[in-house]
Design a protein around this nucleic acid. Structure first.
Lengths: 237, 237
DNA sequence: TTGCATAGTGTCAAAAGTACAATAAACCCC
DNA sequence: GGGGTTTATTGTACTTTTGACACTATGCAA
């Protein structure tokens, strides 16, 4: 027997979007005339696609995201490969696959990437997306197709680890931000509270967070000082 | 164009072996009549294989290692997928591939796993392996085939991270070990020195390292107390 | 001017980390 | 059996980091 004579490889992207409203994931709603029902409701799934024959893995992930959001240059990080032989063999998933693939029964191994975008500035708004695509709060994601719920969980854990070990918060914030926004980001992503004074003490030690000569405007309370990230000073620790 | 109509998927295994002599990797020497020369010398490579059509990724890694070492149940962890379209297209690598594959020119994506075995007890000795397989000190690995040097580097980093964040040292030590052996392990893998007294202070806080009623024997100096790991107490932190 | 909402700030105690050196036990050799 | 060699074992003082905790400041709106 020839090994893996009919085996497909895809990338799946967990695109995290953040704004003052929380952490969201970009999900695709399977079309009405093609979806299978899970408890009578249409299922969503992560954006993903089979990789092209001469395409790198990260390039494939970039392509998938660009096609959906028209945005380039998003932070992307591979976090895990999923290769359970039965991961696309569930009845509800095959029904959907039959409607979109020429070879719906073939095994698919997928490589998971997570991406980060800020939804603050006038970045990718759902409106500019292809239809059937939406931002869903990470805490309100229902059952997804295939093994996409585990992939999402893997992505969340990878994001948390990455936030604690690398300086990536600027990928999720507007160019100018307040320390409260920064703290909210950490609290949302890591799902725990920080003491305000201790948090600010730590931020002052980060040389890549620099205060601007500018304050928040249009708020009906004491305006906060604005900060920005100095990309030159982001150590790779 | 059909996407990835002829694309192969493999696993590559970085099997780390440890004993008082240092940290080693299991390498395969390409056979004399098939290898390509790099600067006139035969190349080595990581053990790996195409995955079978109904085989999970980790199962494939287990199979590869079992075929080489006859050992089952080794600790295995996936760390990265490598999918550069040109990763097997180097001239020296194609020469070798032509001698062992029916379709040598096809693109291969590979998923990297690292594994851990102790070489202390009478575990997998090179002698019990298939010919052409050997343990090489991680600091003395020369140029490998394909992108296997980067895969090895990725594995080393993943191992270091894992050792600092999870309790995996027992996978690399004999069942009964001294605190000096434990410290040597940390120093070897993390490539830095620890203070003996401080190191032991920390170990005493680890509830899964338990002292035995037994001492080292056959050494010509003060015998050290032996310890073992209590698997029940290994927290997943 | 008062009320409301959020910004901003310091101190103390506990815990963790770091630097550092003398004694103890077993073996070998003479 | 005594001296030499080798590694094991142990504690203390100092520094740094972490964690808990509450009040004043500023801008806007009513």
């Amino acid at each position: 027997m020839q090994p893996n004579e009919s085996l497909h490889l895809s990338v799946d992207c967990v695109l995290f979007g953040y704004d003052d409203d929380g952490l969201k994931v970009l999900l695709i709603n399977q079309k009405e005339d093609t979806y299978a029902h899970a408890q009578g409701r249409p299922m969503s799934q992560l954006p993903g696609d089979l990789i092209l024959i001469d395409e790198g893995l990260e390039a494939a992930a970039e392509r998938v995201l660009f096609e959906l959001t028209q945005v380039n240059g998003v932070y992307l990080k591979q976090f895990h490969a999923y290769g359970d032989p039965d991961r696309v063999k569930d009845h509800k998933d095959r029904t959907w696959l039959r409607s979109v693939r020429t070879l719906p029964d073939q095994r698919v191994i997928t490589v998971g990437y997570f991406g980060l975008v800020s939804l603050h500035d006038h970045s990718p708004q759902p409106a500019s997306f292809a239809g059937g695509v939406s931002w869903v709060d990470v805490n309100e994601v229902g059952p997804l197709a295939f093994d996409h719920n585990s992939i999402l969980n893997g992505a969340i854990e990878a994001l948390q680890t990455q936030l604690e070990t690398h300086h990536i918060s600027f990928e999720l914030l507007p160019k100018k931000f307040t320390l409260s926004q920064l703290q909210d980001l950490y609290e949302t992503v890591l799902d725990k509270k920080f003491d305000k004074r201790n948090f600010r003490k730590n931020v002052k030690k980060m040389s890549h967070v620099v205060p601007l000569d500018e304050k928040q405007q249009g708020v009906m309370h004491k305006p906060a000082q604005l900060f920005s990230f100095n990309p030159d000073q982001i150590e790779n620790a």
